[in-house]
Write a protein that binds this DNA or RNA. Sequence first.
DNA 1: GTCTCAAAGTAGACGATGTCAACAAAGCTG
DNA 2: CAGCTTTGTTGACATCGTCTACTTTGAGAC
Lengths: 199, 199
Amino acid sequence: MATTSPRPYHHGNLREELLARAEEVVRDGGVGDLSLREIARDIGVSHAAPRRHFPDRQALLDALALRGFERLGDDLRASATRSRGGLEARLVRVAAAYVRFATREAALLELMFVGKHRDGADDLHDAGTAAFQPVVELIASGQAAGELRGTDPSQTGLAMFAAIHGLASLATAGMVAADDLEEAVRTVVAGVLDGLRPR
Amino acid sequence: MATTSPRPYHHGNLREELLARAEEVVRDGGVGDLSLREIARDIGVSHAAPRRHFPDRQALLDALALRGFERLGDDLRASATRSRGGLEARLVRVAAAYVRFATREAALLELMFVGKHRDGADDLHDAGTAAFQPVVELIASGQAAGELRGTDPSQTGLAMFAAIHGLASLATAGMVAADDLEEAVRTVVAGVLDGLRPR
DNA sequence: GTCTCAAAGTAGACGATGTCAACAAAGCTG
DNA sequence: CAGCTTTGTTGACATCGTCTACTTTGAGAC
């Protein structure tokens, strides 16, 4: 039997591997199940090793949230640019992508929107607004084309943002049945959109 | 100096007092800061005493969430019945009450909408839908009066529910400035409502 | 009234965790 | 190759949730 290859003293990629493993644990166990010592064990490193990369547990959680916003932003951007059709169809697709992310990564999303981050959480905040830029841009294009009322896309987009995020939040909380979800997305997007149309 | 009155062996009201103290701790420290041992100390009972009333930590958290839904429901009902004016004005007041609750009890709200509850969490789910009954009823009255489209208030109300909840969630996450909040509530409610009006 | 028993609180232990300080190895730079 | 910084290790500590065994109390049966 081959001896377990003796890992070099310096792992070389610990930070990334910690985050990846932590993401897995959070995905199928929730934030509460995440233990620094456990993921250190899983990777095969001493219990205090993570400390070199994350001063405390919250720092790891914040890093996870940051990653989450980046991935969410990628998802939304992809679905916004890829999808054809009119404004409503595109927004529905983006919203669907958001809800998909939310249901697949429920615990991660929770982590992303929790108020309690460490002090310098401006990067978190920025990452959050950046992730939603695709929605704002869609709204802006609708306003430019005269399809929507208003002139401030970020202000007007807030309603859409809030509705989509709320729907996703309700879905992860189990307050919207999975079967109703797809239709709910259409209803909500269409509803808010209609409310924004010129009178 | 008067000797500290010797608490009776049987506290008599421990469960309630534990919940009350836990609510305080959660309010100004978040869920993570809640320690069974600490609140036991605060109240002046042994560290294992809470176990007689809550088999484990999660049971206490669930009880807190349940209480939260009850209080939220009371708030919404009160603001729904008290407020005069048309449908929109009433809905704006209810939404404002929701956002107020959300910002005041951010950590509690988080607890209420977390997916991870213990197994028999049907009561939690029921309490959640019950809390939002006032909104559904307002929508229903609007539909009955022909002010709104649709016939299924719970289905139609979902958009409103989602938008309000999403806005509150964004507010607690600090993604909506406190100054913009009041206007955002009006915008969101009016937007969704307009989307539900007969065409 | 007293006996009995279940309910409610206490005391002590265990394993696990986050955090810290002191130490060791490895890589980089002069 | 010498020294310094980075990265990982080891051991310790306080705290926590949970479990088991014990004690006190109150309420109902007789």
